[in-house]
Simulated assay, not measured.
Amino acid sequence: MNDHAKAVITVDRLSKHYGDRTVLRDVSLSVRKGEVFGLLGPNGAGKTTTLETIVGLRRPSAGTVRVLDHDPASDRRFVTERLAVQPQAATLFPTLTVVETLELFASFHARVRPPEDVLDELELGDARRVRVKHLSGGQERRLLIAIALIGDPEIIVLDEPSAGLDPQARRNLWSIIRRQQERGTTILLSTHHMDEATQVCERIAVLVDGSVAAMGEPETLVREHASTATVTFEIPGTTTVAELRSHDIAGAITVTPKGTLTLVEVVTDDPDAVLRRLTFSTGLRPRGFRVAHGSLEDLFIDLANRPRASAEGERAHER
Rank of each mutant, 00 (worst) to 15 (best):
L296D: 04
L188V: 13
F93E: 05
V222G: 00
T238K: 10
E196Q: 09
G259H: 09
L275M: 13
R59E: 14
T101G: 00
R319W: 02
S61A: 07
L68W: 05
V67I: 07
V241P: 06
K133A: 11
A273G: 09
S107G: 09
G63H: 08
L57M: 13
A163G: 01
P161Q: 08
L135H: 13
A106S: 03
G44I: 06
I156H: 03
I253E: 10
T185G: 02
A304E: 08
P72G: 11
D75P: 05
L149T: 09
E52A: 13
Q86I: 12
P286N: 09
G259E: 01
S30Y: 06
A90D: 07
V200D: 03
L40G: 00
G216D: 00
T279K: 08
T198A: 11
T22C: 13
T50E: 10
R308M: 10
V11Q: 06
E154V: 04
I145D: 01
I155D: 02
G137Q: 14
M215K: 00
R131D: 00
A273F: 06
T228A: 00
L296Y: 00
E196S: 03
H247T: 02
E81V: 01
L275D: 04
E314I: 08
L244N: 07
G294S: 05
S246F: 02
F233K: 02
H109M: 09
L173G: 02
V267A: 12
L275W: 01
N172Q: 14
R111P: 01
A73P: 06
T260Q: 14
T198I: 11
G294M: 00
L278H: 05
E312I: 07
V65L: 09
P114E: 14
L284K: 06
N43T: 11
K6P: 02
R183V: 13
V130T: 15
A250W: 07
S175V: 04
S295P: 03
A45M: 03
P257G: 04
L165I: 06
